[in-house]
Design a protein around this nucleic acid. Structure first.
Lengths: 111, 111
DNA sequence: GCAATAGTTAAGTGAATGCTTGAGTATTGG
DNA sequence: CCAATACTCAAGCATTCACTTAACTATTGC
């Protein structure tokens, strides 16, 4: 389920918004309630809840409600999936460059 | 300029679209012309050019025109910036978990 | 019990996005 | 020279997005 392309899509989509990235950033320093997440953001609590729902649907954040407080946490495995996608592409490119370098060095030797 | 928040924003924004990610994926396997990028995509060439312009503005892709052919390449340093942002947050969370584990182990010893 | 707290839900709005079509501009092979 | 190629640019359009406000529900502390 980590490599579900639709899930990857929701994840990158979720990370595309600066407010949501700020929320992820805040959560990387420890769990927080919805109000705590909202506090530094210049928008209504309702807007924050909507962002949070998206983050949860994307798998980046997990939440649980105790009483009237919803506590939010980062889901590191989801972050790792996004990280991995980018890393794979970058490495593929860099490996290609290396092979090209090797090839050029070789053909230069053959003078 | 790699840590310009506006640039990071454009980058995550660029990666949020599946067509654009498919283009990055294709480019990770080597340079390509606009038409080559368009070939597997179910949309007009014009649409592809619009995606490409966004990718270029985000710094993820560099292009150069020779004659009538625009050749596109990945810019790995930009990919690295996105990767780095995610990685930092994930590591911050995981380090926090480790410290928490240590604390729990310590307090358990003190019985 | 009742007011304050913490969050939820729904409806609406304006701006941004992802396309399309159509008309144009260089370049290039024959 | 001229037709095919390889884009490029500008409008227009439907959908999605990021909000807002307003009304509502569920806890908690006194």
């Amino acid at each position: 389920m980590l490599h579900d392309p639709a899930q990857l899509d929701r994840m990158f989509q979720a990370l595309a918004d600066p407010a949501r990235r700020q929320m992820v950033d805040r959560l990387s320093r420890g769990p927080a309630s919805v109000s705590q997440l909202a506090e530094p953001l210049a928008m209504s609590l309702s807007a924050v809840v909507q962002h949070l729902n998206l983050l949860e649907a994307s798998g980046l954040v997990r939440t649980q409600k105790l009483g009237r407080v919803r506590t939010c946490q980062i889901e590191p495995t989801a972050l790792r999936a996004a990280e991995h996608w980018i890393n794979e592409r970058r490495l593929a490119w860099e490996r290609r460059l290396d092979r090209l370098g090797d090839f050029l060095a070789e053909t230069k030797d053959e003078t």
